[in-house]
Amino acid sequence: MSRMRMVMVAIALLVAGIAVGAAGGVLLAPAPQRPPAAPSLVDIGFSQDMIVHHQQALELAGLVRGRLGPSAATVAATIENSQQREIGLMQGWLSAWDAPQVSDTEPMAWMAGKHDHGDAEAPMPGLLSRAELDELAGLNGAELESRFIRLMIRHHTGGVEMATIAVREAALPQVRAQARLMVAEQRKEMGVLSGLLTAGAGR
């Protein structure tokens, strides 16, 4: 067989293969609704920004470690554990998507105007300023506990706002599911924290 002929045969086989494959694909594919496997701007932006947001929750909990009453300490430890785990998950996603761990755009660009910048200059909903963290670090006793609870509730409120957008707009089902879980767990934690505040925790 001449070289040219071999090439022609190979091409023919390849074309046939593609045709058979395509036909098989059409015939065997389940529903055409399969979502795209690629992450969208929302999936990536949400993961990058939520890592930053979660990191501040860890800092908040880290600043009061060993200085809270038992109930508040339990909630703080729960928050630390779940958010640490979720940071790892989102880092894993970004890594698997070959996306940068840190965003190159302005924070919340993926929310496209849905963030109302209610918190003066906070670049993300519920993000606390350095001054607020410093102030917390300097407190003690009942004051520390109630301040911590209030700050964490505000921080979580912002987190829920961010996750809610991702629940609606992320492209990948696992991102939407995780965002839904974040909304649920942070709402639950806010409930417990509010309860502690009402019950006079730290008083």
Binding site: P32, R34, P35, P36, A38, P39, S40, L41, V42, D43, I44, W97, D98, A99, P100, D104, A171
Partner: peptide, 16 residues
């Protein structure tokens, strides 16, 4: 899928 296309294209540019 079509609706998601613009986002996918945007991401292709974003994913570094």
């Amino acid at each position: 899928i079509l609706r998601a296309l613009p986002a996918v294209i945007a991401v292709a540019a974003l994913v570094v």
